[in-house]
């Protein structure tokens, strides 16, 4: 039997599953309200850029402070939380995720597709916002380090929030608990937790990459700069593997339950 052909006579093949999931993620997981919820914290990053002018230090040091305390600790996790919830948790809650799950698609492709889809959105929203914030703060030399730290931190966060989406239906609540209780509270006192935290590690990436970082932002016991990038990359891979394992055992009980 001849293979089906397209209009110009080329053999017709269905789209690769991973690509189909990616396109689906971008088309379906980000309705206008979700975009608003992502862009709102991103605009907060710009306000933090303005806030740097109110700090009576050099522009670079002032931005380093607001970036560490405001952007990497608040803006990035909140925006990434909305993205991470959009690409999986929200769909599981509204009951339409079964369309994807009830296919012979390997679960690793589902997880990877959703993560890449969410990460691309993060790279095109959070990361530019952080870069613009550095410019607004009058610290152009911080643009590169801040954008690298935001990029690595947000893709890591998206992976974590996808994993949380695979474990619980209350993704937003558990994700907030992770950010504020585990990372901020526990990570603030326990270096072991800070070493695995996107907030602390993205701060460490940023601090490690800028010149003349304020001493108080350098936290002993966790890797800085490029080492912190490697650490977050490992965290991301481990979390994605965990998400894939959970995805295989996920219980999809429907929107009404």
């Amino acid at each position: 039997m001849n293979a089906p052909v397209d209009a110009v006579g080329r053999p017709w093949r269905p789209q690769p599953r991973l690509l189909a999931i990616l396109r689906y993620t971008w088309r379906s997981c980000f309705p206008p309200k979700r975009w608003a919820a992502i862009l709102l914290p991103c605009s907060g990053a710009l306000l933090f850029g303005l806030l740097a002018h109110a700090i009576d230090q050099g522009a670079d040091r002032a931005f380093a402070n607001v970036a560490a305390e405001g952007i990497f600790s608040l803006v990035m996790p909140i925006a990434a939380l909305v993205i991470g919830d959009s690409v999986l948790g929200a769909e599981i809650r509204n009951g339409s995720f079964h369309l994807t799950w009830l296919s012979p698609t390997p679960t690793w492709q589902i997880v990877l597709g959703r993560w890449v889809g969410g990460s691309v959105v993060a790279l095109f929203t959070i990361v530019p916002a952080v870069g613009v914030a550095a410019v607004i703060a009058g610290s152009p030399s911080s643009v590169g380090p801040a954008m690298i730290a935001a990029a690595v931190g947000s893709v890591s966060y998206v992976a974590i929030f996808i994993a949380i989406g695979c474990m619980t239906r209350r993704t937003a609540v558990w994700s907030l608990a992770f950010v504020f209780l585990v990372e901020r509270l526990l990570g603030g006192v326990l270096t072991g937790i800070a070493q695995l935290s996107p907030t602390w590690e993205s701060r460490a990436i940023f601090v490690g990459l800028i010149d003349d970082a304020p001493r108080r932002l350098v936290r002993d016991g966790i890797p800085q700069g490029v080492d912190a990038i490697a650490r977050l990359a490992i965290v991301t891979v481990v979390v994605l593997l965990l998400a894939e394992w959970r995805m295989r055992h996920i219980r999809l009980s429907g929107a009404s339950d």
Binding site: P14, Q15, R17, A20, T105
Partner: peptide
Amino acid sequence: QLTHYLADLHRVTER
């Protein structure tokens, strides 16, 4: 788009 998405996930070869 919905039916095409499902067709892609299931590797449906009938165009």
